[in-house]
Design a protein around this nucleic acid. Sequence first.
DNA 1: ATAATATATGAATATTCATTCAAATGTTCA
DNA 2: TGAACATTTGAATGAATATTCATATATTAT
Lengths: 122, 122
Amino acid sequence: MTRKYEEIERCDCDVIHEDVVYEVKKKMPREETLYDLAELFKVFGDSTRIKILWALEEAEMCVCDIAFLLNMTQSAISHQLRVLKQAKLVRSRKEGKIVYYSLSDDHVRQIFDQGLSHINEG
Amino acid sequence: MTRKYEEIERCDCDVIHEDVVYEVKKKMPREETLYDLAELFKVFGDSTRIKILWALEEAEMCVCDIAFLLNMTQSAISHQLRVLKQAKLVRSRKEGKIVYYSLSDDHVRQIFDQGLSHINEG
DNA sequence: ATAATATATGAATATTCATTCAAATGTTCA
DNA sequence: TGAACATTTGAATGAATATTCATATATTAT
């Protein structure tokens, strides 16, 4: 067979609808964009972080509060807050020795809502 | 200190804003709901699956087509399609020995859009 | 029936990652 | 200054999982 994509090496099977694939390939976003998107959703893909985000949607809280709410160690919460902060989903504010966390924007609620409506239709 | 939640054992620090935490706790969804939500986002949290979903948004395709498009083995794609199908994000249709996959609903696009708008604001 | 092809599947491997534990940092207060 | 406390951080451990490889299943054509 002849292939339009001659650089392809890892694929071990014949393409069946080459023209369709070719059109789809042209419309795909940049590799990097798709990677970033996956990285963002990976952050949402952990129930501890989901709980933290959901909680912060209700109120600003400090690390101890969240640890207490979720019945987890303060260290575990702190590690997860760092992940959330790196993803720019939460921001922090320091007041003395206490660090308050809150959501950094309102996408979280909208992403949750879309996810929930998918779940609730199954 | 006295705690309203006496069953809590794993938390190793004092709660600071007990009333806030108490109110937040009342508003939290069921544990199972939050778990399911995390499981759903976990499915989105892999760039191979993101690529598959994005591709299927453009056109229905068979396993070979997708493997060819993404330059991956047919086996790897098949494994990931199973994950997507279990999450009810894709559905399949068999025509002879060829299995065609497509998106099962339109939440995928909306979830992508929310994710992208978060990324593009950073 | 046999060959060829499309897909699925199970085991193995390698990597990623959530939590724990111990220790460090930074802040308040006596 | 030193004790107490809130938080952070780094290393270690164990669990989850993406891909590969080999093989199985199913369908079509000869």
